[in-house]
Design a protein around this nucleic acid. Structure first.
Lengths: 197, 197, 197, 197
DNA sequence: AATGAATGAGATTTCATTCAT
DNA sequence: TATGAATGAAATCTCATTCAT
């Protein structure tokens, strides 16, 4: 005899977020190559079949996780964003926000780095992700117009303004560097020296 | 008494290098997750079993490939290395060597980036790899002593002196940036502005 | 609150027993060396992957099969076991039970013999298996105390009381011996003559 | 340029016996299932290809090893064999010879037991092997004719006269039993009691 | 005779996904 | 919605054997 009783049928936010965390954790620990659907399900405490209730397939799970983090990151970077401050102060604020985000969410950040450097990144709609960060680009544009920032290609500017942080915040890449306010301030000085006119 | 002086059937250098190229190519195209031993073997035109004549296992193949590229890269960077030039000229030379290497060996470079950002990187004996690049660190050290370069943590200096190149040279990350002599010179200006006193 | 009362798709007893029979059959026919998981699966009519739903790995399948037979055998030997009968009658009863079991389940018995003589046997928790046969050891003990059985090491007693059956019941080892009531009775006479005082 | 110089071309007895010992050792340690040609070759210190100089194939190596041990064993059993002694003394002598052989060559004996209980045994020409032991059968025959030994099937007699030794000499099967002269004498008493009229 | 290289075949096991409930 | 069972496909790796020298 079969008994089949339930109350409620809504998707469970707890399961969804357990899957998110499990995905990030496993991919960081053992990489994309070894992170199977079964292992992620076990880590999240659900059945492998349940994943297919929330995501179309494994690829969807990974890409969704990436995009969710990117959105989260963009919000963190733009906290207390204020157009009217001096350019340097705006950038300094973003810089510190990023350090804070990475420090507090190292796992998320590591996932994003690994994802970005893998062929999975080609599955992401880049335009969608980039729009999250548009204000940051606009600041640089304004800086150029005001002759405060060097008038060079945007890719060059971001390579010096934003990318060094991702290195410095990665404990795997930096052995000596300690993530404290003083060091972050120092590093920002270099970033600013690089791009300022 | 028995005397044996023979030349046995020896390992085939062509097979070895075919495996190297196949590994790089496939990992770049489909990632670690999908690059199976069988596929690599097929790409290299050998039997999957043959891989195990040359490498202990898949991990060994990947790690060996990584280390081989790192060694190759370090040699390229240190081409025409001359202690007696002014610091800025030495660094500028390395900077151009790196651009040249990445331009000519984009596949190798992409493999290294993906590898570095994956958990595979923990399998590498970092000390062994780092020693290849010791001269580059020493230049910065000298610069600090001569009060030409900012006296800050080495990790910070390299984050601005070497890391931006890896971003700029990656067509996946930079859509607008064109790899030509002028742009490279410009980018170096920013790097130097960042670290110089 | 969510209430779940359901009966899930449950493991299939038929599959489990098909795997048991297939394992015994194949190992007897072609030996451990050639009995691959794939072949066992094919013989049982399931997918190779299904075996891993029921058993942790191949070793677990083999060991579990061995233990299951040993338990089955012990139950058969102790059928109609009655402490109060004369010692000789108890042992004679066990002796006949064993012959009957082996005759009716020659495949099981052959599997056990091959397993016991292979390095797989070291994987079994011997204490667990031996406890099944404790009553048989106790009978001998009682016989010694009552001065009916020779007061010698237990290993010697069992070597004569139980082991000869395993030889006689093995058609591969005995070409002339026919498994009939008269011969079994005769053989028991020798066993009894060996151990009685 | 290839240099290929040798003196002598005869098969090397040392290699042959190294292969014999390696086969016995490995099969005892890891079983037939895991004893690959490569592992045996490595254990013997030769190339896998060399095995095929001495044996037709793997099966031939295993069967030859078995037969060699059986021949060796038969010679040991029949040491000091003397038709004219009383039956009991002849058998007692064989019994002690067997204990001695097994004690001194436990590895050989364990290999034989594992081989006999595996389907490999069907590959052996049984008649060839049995002829080595003909004198032992003849003794029993004589005993029956002289009305010293019970007139029962030969298989029964050997099951009590020879087989118990194989159990008692196996340390894996007997935990308490110690292989010393007194215990062996005792065990022989039981064997004799079993078969004597 | 002896062997390191090479490999097709096949080993064990895990995969992503679907099914039945 | 949720899941344990089930599986074809494919993963990594080892196998027995042959080849070229």
């Amino acid at each position: 005899m079969i008994v089949y009783l339930r109350i409620m049928r809504t998707k469970d936010d707890e399961k969804d977020s357990a899957l998110f965390e499990a995905t990030v954790k496993l991919v960081n620990e053992i990489g994309f190559a070894s992170s199977s659907v079964s292992k992620i399900a076990r880590e999240a405490g659900v059945s492998p079949a349940t994943i297919y209730v929330y995501y179309k397939n494994k690829e969807d799970l990974l890409v969704s996780t990436y995009i969710a983090i990117k959105l989260d990151l963009s919000k963190a970077l733009l906290r207390d964003f204020n157009d009217h401050l001096p350019i340097r102060d705006i950038l300094r604020n973003v810089w510190f926000n990023m350090f804070e985000y990475i420090s507090n969410n190292l796992e998320y950040y590591k996932f994003v780095e690994q994802f970005s450097n893998s062929p999975f990144s080609s599955l992401v709609d880049k335009q969608e992700v980039e729009q999250y960060f548009v204000p940051l680009v606009k600041v640089l544009q304004t800086g150029i117009e005001q002759k405060i920032i060097k008038n060079v290609n945007f890719d060059i500017l971001t390579a010096f303004m934003y990318h060094p942080i991702t290195v410095l915040a990665n404990p795997g890449l930096c052995q000596d560097f300690e993530l404290n306010a003083e060091n972050i301030e120092t590093a920002f000085t270099l970033a600013w020296d690089a791009i300022k006119l």
